[in-house]
């Protein structure tokens, strides 16, 4: 649904996006992670035909960016970084305007559907300016969906929202995912990306890495198994270190953290070695790095 080949964007001498190549499949939720100023919004603007490419090629829903811009804008839905509602106009009229511009056939029906779906129907006659930030964001999401786009670009959908509003928005995105829509989600909320995205790309002017969240953890930190012991003894570090498949061993209080590949195959050997050396193993588990740790590791290294 989204295909880019080596796209680059320069503003004068400033390089905002460098050689971005990626493919996003139909029905996929793709997380585009990166710090502020990384070029995420610029990328969304390029892919929604709001700004041009400096070089490279891109296709969205089969339409070529730069040549079929109106078709792209007709096909995709965009949640911009800020809701940008017409504050003096009612919520309902705000949506009606955009439904007309998107050439929606059943304008009244679609407006009602999304106002109800996002819990704003009772406030439909109120001016958008009287809405809280969370409500405005929900209204902006409704606006992006009025024409039932198969591809959605969501730029920081939960930025600045309180936990309850963030939760509601996230639930709604999960619903959209179930409907099979392709979602390009720009965020620096890594918990959000972890929960919602099939794949994530970490981006800082250029794409640093692209994978599923779980593969990303493995590729950055490797797999680590934690052996919880009754008592700590530095001798057991030596015992485990001698095993040929072990890459690294650390003793943290009474926990022995072992880095290795294929723990499903190797764990019995370690357990056997430890028990033979006199260790009492209480339980064994895998150390799971948060996506945040992965992200920080990548971004700081970039």
């Amino acid at each position: 649904m989204i295909h880019t080949e080596n796209i680059t964007k320069k503003f004068g001498e400033v390089l905002a996006v460098e050689g971005l190549s990626l493919d996003v499949s139909e029905g996929e939720v793709f997380g585009f992670l990166g710090p502020n100023g990384a070029g995420k919004t610029t990328t969304v603007r390029m892919l929604t035909s709001l700004i041009g490419l400096t070089s490279g090629t891109a296709q969205v829903a089969g339409f070529v960016v730069g040549r079929q811009d109106t078709d792209i804008r007709r096909t995709v839905g965009v949640l911009t970084e800020t809701p940008g509602m017409y504050d003096n106009l009612s919520a309902q009229y705000n949506l009606q305007i955009f439904a007309e511009l998107y050439e929606v056939k059943d304008i009244e029906g679609q407006v009602e559907k999304y106002l109800r779906m996002l819990g704003l129907w009772d406030r439909r006659a109120d001016a958008a300016g009287t809405f809280s930030k969370g409500m405005k964001q929900k209204l902006a999401i409704a606006r992006a969906l009025l024409h039932e786009p198969r591809i959605l670009f969501l730029d920081e959908p939960t930025a600045g929202l309180d936990p309850e509003a963030s939760h509601l928005v996230r639930e709604f995105i999960a619903e959209l995912k179930k409907e099979g829509r392709t979602i390009f989600l720009c965020t620096h909320n890594l918990d959000e990306a972890d929960r919602l995205c099939d794949r994530v790309g970490v981006f800082k002017t250029r794409l640093l890495v692209l994978d599923t969240p779980s593969s990303l953890r493995t590729s950055v930190f490797g797999r680590k198994i934690v052996f919880h012991l009754r008592t700590a003894d530095p001798h057991w570090v030596d015992v485990v270190e001698k095993l040929p498949f072990v890459r690294e061993v650390k003793l943290v209080e009474t926990k022995l953290v072992v880095a290795m590949d294929e723990p499903e195959v190797r764990n019995p050997d370690i357990i056997r070695a430890l028990v033979d050396a006199g260790a009492d193993i209480q339980f064994v588990g895998e150390l799971r790095h948060s996506l945040e740790e992965v992200y920080l590791q990548l971004v700081r290294g970039a």
Binding site: R73, T80, T82, G84, Y102
Partner: peptide, 14 residues
């Protein structure tokens, strides 16, 4: 100033 231009420009309006 009200940031409403970007969503407007994102529609298929010429």
């Amino acid at each position: 100033t009200t940031r409403s231009l970007e969503p407007l420009l994102a529609t298929p309006i010429t």
